[in-house]
């Protein structure tokens, strides 16, 4: 057991899985010698060699396309894309190819591919380096999307993703990379893809979120009156997502606020609100609220905190919903 940051927990998971499975190969821009933009792969090339931790040219479509070819041949590639905005050049490979081979090939070709991507804002970066595109990929049949918010979850989810027979986009919230440490076991463990967790139990209102905003929500909970009991759910997997954990909680509370960084319109919160009205219409005591980024391009750092959902906005929305 060690006290690790999110970065260190991911590094540990990669090292352990490379040790256990020689089909695991990492590729990406500057992941070897430099250890990656965020140093997530630090030391892995020294340990496993240039053939298994491959410094690739700056070519996202080529990286993901080659990784798909590797996966088709039976390997377990784990490419890194430096920032979520750089998924753009690889979009064709991910959505038109990786996602569809299983269907196209009648299940004979599977793509065990895990794409690691830093995601989200809050680190004073410009757009393309601060976006939250999880709903785009959740909307693509054939791809799984996960976004852990803690070092413990990150290790378990990454091991599950690499071992998963389907393509997985593994989003790593940049804001959490080095923001805190927690105990992460050395042992092998996985967290099932598609399972959320209750971060804070409560009975009056449900808050559903994922990624870095888990911590803004926790901060918001501190600002609420003591007699307001809020259940906070960290979804962890965006697709497939844990319908049961949401439905069980909202059936109990009758009120729900969804919080995410991505723009509000067609954000994944819309899916959750739709699920709740489909399934719990008669249990609802208030309309489902959404606290999200705005329908605009992520602003540069000076306005970043105006864009991102913060504790006061979340607390206000929770109180409105609770008082309805």
């Amino acid at each position: 057991m060690a006290n690790l940051t999110l970065v260190q927990a991911i590094n540990l998971a990669l090292a352990q899985e490379m040790e256990a499975d020689d089909r695991v190969v990492l590729l990406g821009e500057d992941i070897g010698k430099n250890g990656g933009v965020f140093r997530v792969t630090e030391g892995l090339q020294q340990r496993f060699g240039e053939h298994r931790v491959v410094d690739s040219p700056l070519a996202e479509s080529g990286i993901i396309g080659a990784a798909i070819g590797l996966a088709m041949a039976g390997m377990r590639p784990v490419p890194e894309i430096q920032f979520e905005g750089f998924l753009g050049p690889a979009y064709d490979q991910i959505c038109n190819h990786a996602a569809r081979y299983r269907t196209r090939s009648r299940g004979s070709v599977t793509i065990p591919l895990t794409i690691r991507v830093p995601v989200g804002g809050g680190i004073h970066a410009p757009e393309l380096h601060s976006d939250s595109p999880e709903a785009i990929y959740a909307h693509t049949p054939g791809i799984k999307v996960v976004m852990p918010s803690s070092p413990y979850d990150a290790k378990g989810l990454l091991l599950a993703a690499i071992r998963d027979p389907d393509p997985v986009i593994f989003f790593e919230p940049k804001r959490v990379y080095r923001s805190f440490r927690e105990e992460v076991p050395e042992d092998d463990y996985t967290i099932e893809i598609g399972k959320g967790k209750v971060v804070n139990e409560g009975s009056d209102l449900t808050v559903v979120t994922w990624g870095a905003t888990v911590y803004q929500c926790l901060e918001a909970l501190d600002k609420l009156p003591e007699d307001l009991s809020v259940e906070l759910i960290d979804l962890r997997s965006i697709y497939p997502y844990d319908e049961d954990i949401i439905l069980q909680s909202v059936e109990k509370t009758g009120r729900c606020v969804v919080v995410h960084e991505a723009p509000k319109t067609c954000g994944f919160g819309a899916e959750i609100a739709a699920l709740i009205q489909e399934r719990l219409f008669l249990h609802l005591k208030a309309p489902v609220q959404r606290v999200a980024g705005f329908d605009t391009v992520m602003p540069y750092y000076k306005l970043e905190l105006d864009y991102l959902p913060d504790a006061p906005r979340i607390a206000e929305s929770i109180q409105q919903c609770a008082g309805y």
Binding site: G62, G65, A66, G69, L70, M72, A73, R104
Partner: peptide, 30 residues
């Protein structure tokens, strides 16, 4: 698609299969 005959697909997006070819070759080398 015909995996038993080592055919990894026809592809509808012009040129996109070329990176896959590189990846299949990468696996051979690996």
């Amino acid at each position: 698609f015909d995996k038993p005959n080592h055919l990894y697909g026809g592809h509808g997006i012009v040129g996109a299969q070329t990176a896959l070819g590189a990846g299949l070759a990468f696996a051979v080398k690996y």
